[in-house]
Design a protein around this nucleic acid. Structure first.
Length: 945
RNA sequence: GCUCUGGUGGUGGAAUGGUAGACACGAGGGACUUAAAAUCCCUUGCCCGCAAGGGCGUGUGGGUUCAAGUCCCACCCAGAGUACCA
């Protein structure tokens, strides 16, 4: 009987479904193990071969863990809210719920064909009200909590209110809590809530009609769609993720992730230590330097401003100050003579798009305000400038500029001919004139010069000395700044979770938790309204009735008991931030997940997904989890213990070469002079086999090629190739379904693993798939040629070597070498007369994680009634691997010359004697006595002469 | 610019300081077949040589070591991330 993969795969997929083979229980005496894939966004294009790569790897590991006796949680679901479905809805009028449903069905079909061991009974969809109920619930908790910097955790906002009422905590500013109006109190609390509403500069994308988070913008363009993004001040919901910045940095120590991903996260969080420092403004009457040095500085905002620096040691080198164009003091300090110029500059700078600004980073621009600040350590007057190289969102939006030791300040000083003063030197005895420098000296090593009381100190010591000094003077303090910004949480879109929020006199209130979920309303149109409101502005039943505790018609809004609901929806990362917890207990209607479930599963043991989520999802999910941890819901501070990034599968494009003159003529790749006279054109990889073009299919491919002429080589048309992104426009997309129908799912699974290390980016190339397919056919044949008799020694040895290697390889996620090991094993066994059932049934179990269908079929053919999925993983017997002899490589001066088979357990003396006795050994010794011999038992003999 | 990852045959890759190129593809040759497909066998890093054998060889240049693809230093190249972050 031939290996009929179609029949076998359909049969066992049906069996697994019927028998709920992959159903997993929360109640087990077995040890638990949680293997999770990053759930996909179900796009209209369906899966291509790149998507399943990680799923196959995690599936192998999940199946392996089950065979090792673990209760394995291995779920799958859909990140179903998102922009593409909505863009499609705007274009076609199709409701995103319908297209999403359709896309999910297609994904499911494709995933099922590959034979994954997901427990589909735990499926989670972010757009499902039973799920987003808990996303909304978490939002309410975030709204009702603040970050207590003393306890270092989130605490109920009611606690803060109590403290304010009791006077334990005081309100910043002149007023006291009891004197504040209701509205002022609410406004004040907004500065503490972990989900808060604020006027902040946001990334506004006019094309998409929405704001975007920082990680959704790259180079001033939206990640989705590539549309331009501008800065705009808008009132938006944000999550105070910055409160967790330090814990997000610290947590990286506890997890088993790659160094590169940890580094990406550290860079994104961007922790930097330095000092905050007040610079007083020079008034009409400059403060006498003695008074400044005595710390008599007014740190009131009208007369001074705060800067942040990582280089307090360079304070003696400050020659100007710079404010960002958004800085609130500009208006106040600008002198009448400079006012026109400053206003012009600020207007210009604010109206620049993010893209323009970033594209012209090298261009220096700025304007002098006419005002001066006083250097608190020297008493010097320092001009204050405005420039957009200082960013509003980082630090305090104001800097002290030290052009000699900061490359940006240096460029600015050169452009505007401002003085440059050296205060750090690598060698203080060899100072050069800074006006001759070509670049600044940014190094944090070296010694201070021209720096008052810190002159002669090393930079590191000087930093501490200056911080001590300013703290003593009461004009500054040591502090830490983060590059990480709070996450903007509003989207002016339809297809997302509605906020459980309504507005009373413009103040946000959350709807009662018992009333969740707040369902996404129906709308007629998915575009913004005529008045520029988000799509939910089209909803006619979108008001909250406080008395009836339900959503009612907008017409009933009276702002007494019926109020308007929030019109924005939540971003994509809302639903994907806590989904891994929901899988633990997906049908719970009373809670996000039960404490029993989370106490059993704890956190994700193995998370597999792309590194492109390093600055987005993986930060948000860690934040979300930490918040739930503070609430006592999740039980581990870090959600994902081990994380494996699967590498991107790149496309391998094929090209035909069209003659420049005769555009109907195509020249084969290796014909002389081809490069000069032709242009390469992408050709569909599905009509190319091993770089040979199928000419007939090419003529049918597109009408303009129907009468194509060819210049062939050896009767064939050879195509060129290149590695590019896998994309429709390059005709290099490989659909897994085609391969499954041609070779079967088991071949596809093995081949994707065989391609190379999981973590490595690699081009997709079907050229090798035949080899894997051949292997499975040989594997199948091995079982046809079986014997009931006892296994012979040679076969047992091959088996146990294979068990050992496969087990090791799976443990270290080296699936490509595992596949080679199976090939070697089958090649060895195929050379034997017949193979014992005893050996074969263990092989069937070994291969089950990789190729579950063929394993299941063969396992049953051997007479087993139960699924191979519940079999026991074979243990290797070290006794079987014991060798009588070892073939030593014999080296002379480190160069391998010949091999010598010697008994194991031989001594160095015996080994040397054997080398001396050997004919080839004698030749290399050339009559000399070895100076030294390195003998490593069962490894090597190295003779030094 | 900075950070990270990588650089090994025609190709994908293997080799946890100890025989570089496992395994597979492709290519060449052969068997079976009327023929094709499928299958099987042999060869396949480069150079010299009929062969035996020898020389060279893991981006480049140094170093450590009995021994380096692997460790250290410097540089070159490619890919990814990030970018006026004070």
């Amino acid at each position: 009987m031939d290996y009929n993969f179609n029949e076998i795969e359909a049969k066992w997929q049906e069996y697994w479904r019927e028998h709920h083979t992959y159903r997993c229980s929360n109640d087990s005496v077995k040890p638990h193990y949680y293997v999770l894939d990053m759930f996909p966004y179900p796009s209209g294009a369906g899966l291509h071969v790149g998507h399943p790569l990680g799923y196959i790897a995690s599936d192998i590991y999940a199946r392996y863990k089950r065979l090792r006796g673990f209760n394995v949680l291995h779920p799958m679901g859909y990140d179903a809210y998102g922009l593409p479905a909505e863009q499609y809805a705007i274009q076609t009028g199709q409701h995103p719920a319908i297209t999403t449903e359709r896309n999910i069905a297609r994904y499911r079909e494709q995933l099922d064909k590959i034979g994954f061991s997901f427990d589909w009974e735990r499926e989670v969809r972010t757009c499902d009200p039973d799920y987003y109920k808990w996303t909304q619930w978490t939002f309410i908790q975030l709204f009702n909590h603040y970050y207590d910097t003393e306890l270092n955790k989130a605490m109920p906002i009611s606690r803060l209110v109590e403290k304010l009422e009791s006077g334990e905590e005081t309100v910043a500013g002149d007023k006291e809590w009891k004197d504040l109006s209701e509205a002022e109190r609410e406004e004040y609390l907004m500065h503490f809530r972990l989900a808060y509403l604020a006027d902040i500069p946001v990334n506004w994308c006019p094309e998409l009609g929405t704001v975007l988070a920082n990680d959704e913008v790259v180079n001033g363009l939206s990640v989705r769609g590539g549309y331009p993004v501008e800065r705009k001040l808008m009132r938006q919901w944000s999550l105070r993720i910055t409160a967790y910045a330090q814990r997000l940095v610290d947590g990286l120590e506890q997890v088993d992730w790659t160094d590169s991903l940890k580094e990406i996260q550290r860079n994104w969080i961007g922790r930097s230590e330095g000092a905050a420092l007040w610079f007083p403004l020079a008034g009409s009457k400059p403060t006498p330097p003695e008074e400044i040095l005595m710390g008599q500085i007014n740190t009131k905002e009208e007369t001074s401003f705060e800067i942040f620096t990582t280089r307090p040691d360079t304070i003696f080198g400050v020659t100007f100050m710079v404010l960002c164009p958004e800085h609130e003091m500009i208006d106040q300090i600008t002198t009448p003579e400079q006012r026109a110029a400053v206003e012009e500059y600020v207007t210009w700078a604010k109206n620049r798009s993010e893209r323009e600004r970033q594209a012209e980073v090298k261009k220096v621009s700025g304007v002098f305000t006419g005002a001066y600040a006083i250097n608190p350590l020297t008493g010097e007057h320092i001009p204050i400038w405005v420039s957009d190289y200082v960013l509003a969102g980082y630090g305090t939006g104001a800097i002290m500029a030290v052009p000699a030791h900061d490359s940006r300040d240096f460029a600015f000083a050169r452009h505007f001919h401002l003085p440059i003063r050296q205060v750090v030197a690598m060698d203080p005895s060899q100072l050069t004139d800074p006006s001759t420098w070509e670049e600044s000296l940014d190094s944090k090593t070296g010694v201070c010069v021209n720096s008052g009381f810190i002159t002669g100190m090393k930079v590191k010591d000087a930093m501490k000395a200056v911080i001590n000094k300013i703290e003593e003077m009461g004009i500054g303090y040591k502090t830490v700044n983060y590059r990480l910004r709070d996450a903007i949480f509003s989207r002016q879109r339809y297809w997302g979770e509605p906020f459980p929020v309504y507005y009373k006199d413009g103040r946000p209130c959350t709807i009662p938790e018992e009333c969740l979920p707040l369902l996404l309303p129906d709308v007629k149109e998915f575009k913004p309204t005529a008045t520029g409101e988000p799509p939910l502005g089209h909803a006619t039943v979108w008001a909250w009735d406080e008395v009836g505790r339900r959503v009612v018609e907008n017409s009933r809004i009276d702002n007494k008991t019926v109020f308007p609901l929030e019109l924005s929806t939540m971003p994509g990362f809302a639903g994907s931030s806590g989904y891994y917890l929901r899988y633990m207990d997906p049908h719970n209607n009373e809670a996000y997940f039960s404490s029993q479930a989370v106490n059993y599963w704890q956190n994700v043991d193995l998370y597999v997904g792309g590194a492109e989520h390093g600055t987005g999802h993986l930060i948000y999910a860690r934040f979300w989890n930490k918040f739930l941890f503070d609430l006592g819901l999740s039980v581990k501070e870090e959600p994902f213990q081990k994380l494996v990034n699967q590498g991107m599968i790149q496309g391998r494009s094929n090209f035909v070469y069209r003659d420049k003159e005769n555009t109907n003529l195509f020249v084969s790749k290796n014909i002389e002079g081809r490069a000069e006279r032709t242009v390469p054109i992408h050709v569909d990889i599905n009509i190319v086999n091993n770089d040979i073009l199928d000419i007939e299919k090419f003529r049918q491919w597109r009408p303009e090629f129907a009468n194509a002429q060819f210049e062939l080589e050896d009767g064939k048309y050879v195509c060129g190739w290149e590695i590019e992104k896998m994309s429709k426009s390059m005709y290099n997309v490989q659909n897994p379904d085609d391969l499954v129908s041609r070779y079967g799912a088991d071949t596809l699974r093995l081949y994707e693993m065989f391609l190379g290390p999981v973590e490595q980016a690699k081009p997709w190339d079907t050229n090798g798939i035949e080899g894997v397919f051949r292997f499975l056919k040989k594997f199948w044949k091995l079982f046809e040629n079986r014997t009931e008799g006892a296994a012979d020694k040679a076969a047992m040895k091959v088996l146990h070597q294979t068990i050992k290697k496969i087990t090791d390889d799976i443990e270290r996620f080296s699936f490509n070498t595992a596949v080679s090991t199976f090939m070697i094993c089958v090649n060895d066994l195929s050379g034997m007369e017949s193979v014992s059932v005893e050996v074969l049934e263990k092989l069937a179990v070994l291969i089950a994680p990789f190729a579950p269908h063929i394993a299941e079929e063969l396992y049953h053919q051997l007479g087993h009634e139960e699924s191979v999925c519940v079999a026991e993983w074979p243990e290797y017997d070290p006794q079987m691997l014991v060798q009588d002899s070892f073939t030593y490589p014999v080296s002379f001066n480190g160069k391998m010359r010949f091999t010598l088979e010697l008994p194991v357990g031989i001594s160095q003396e015996e080994a040397v004697a054997a080398v001396k006795a050997d004919r080839v050994g004698q030749k290399w010794l050339d009559g000399k006595e070895p100076k030294r011999v390195i003998f490593v038992p069962n490894k090597i003999i190295n003779v030094v002469i």
